[in-house]
Amino acid sequence: MAWVKALPRENLEAGGRQVVKIGDRKILLVDLDGKICAVNNACPHLKLPLKKGKITPDGAIVCPFHRSAFDLCTGEVKTWSPFPPVVGNLLGKISAEKTLEVFPTRIESDSIWVDVAE
């Protein structure tokens, strides 16, 4: 696979988010101040869904389950598994720090396209 039409642009409102399925992947699309970011909807720590995660002012998404935070544009780790106290630190050590998978996006013909090439 390569570039795939994911969603009509009008279906992702300003500041909104939506999960789309492309092949076997669930991809979270986020409108971040007009820029469309596409990331794997599974946190790389415990593979839990990120859709309901908090978006921070600096453009990170925070896992709603254990509060690891990842940059939506680059996937880089901002915070690794700080929650719950004590247990989070142990879980963070069990699983090595991993970046969040990100996918290039573009707008074409009023649709959001995602490059999911492997």
Rank of each mutant, 00 (worst) to 15 (best):
I61D: 07
I61N: 08
I61L: 06
I61Y: 07
V62R: 15
C63S: 09
P64Y: 00
F65R: 11
F65W: 13
F65I: 11
H66A: 09
H66R: 14
H66E: 13
R67N: 11
R67G: 14
S68Q: 12
S68E: 01
A69P: 05
A69E: 04
A69F: 07
A69K: 12
A69H: 00
F70R: 12
D71S: 06
D71L: 05
D71A: 14
D71V: 04
L72Q: 05
C73Y: 12
C73W: 07
T74N: 00
T74E: 13
G75F: 06
G75C: 04
G75D: 01
G75R: 12
E76G: 13
E76S: 12
E76K: 12
E76W: 09
E76F: 10
E76P: 12
E76A: 15
V77D: 14
V77P: 10
V77I: 10
K78V: 08
K78T: 05
K78Q: 02
T79I: 07
W80C: 00
S81R: 15
S81W: 15
S81T: 05
S81K: 10
S81I: 03
P82R: 06
P82T: 01
P82E: 11
P82G: 01
F83W: 10
F83S: 06
F83A: 13
F83M: 09
F83I: 04
F83R: 07
P84T: 02
P84S: 05
P84Y: 01
P84K: 09
P84V: 05
P85E: 08
P85F: 03
P85M: 03
P85R: 09
V86W: 05
V86S: 00
V87M: 13
V87S: 06
V87N: 04
G88W: 08
G88K: 09
G88R: 02
G88D: 00
N89I: 01
N89E: 09
L90H: 06
L90V: 06
L90G: 07
L90F: 09
L91D: 04
L91N: 03
L91F: 07
L91S: 10
L91A: 14
G92S: 14
G92N: 12
G92L: 02
G92M: 10
G92D: 14
K93C: 05
K93V: 08
I94C: 10
I94Q: 09
S95K: 14
S95E: 15
S95Y: 08
S95A: 11
A96P: 15
A96L: 15
A96K: 14
A96R: 12
E97G: 13
K98R: 12
K98Y: 14
K98L: 15
T99L: 15
L100I: 04
L100F: 07
L100T: 05
L100P: 07
L100R: 06
E101A: 15
V102D: 03
V102G: 02
V102L: 10
F103G: 01
F103L: 01
F103I: 03
F103V: 02
F103H: 09
F103Y: 15
P104G: 08
P104M: 03
P104W: 11
P104Q: 11
T105A: 02
T105Y: 00
T105D: 04
T105L: 13
T105S: 13
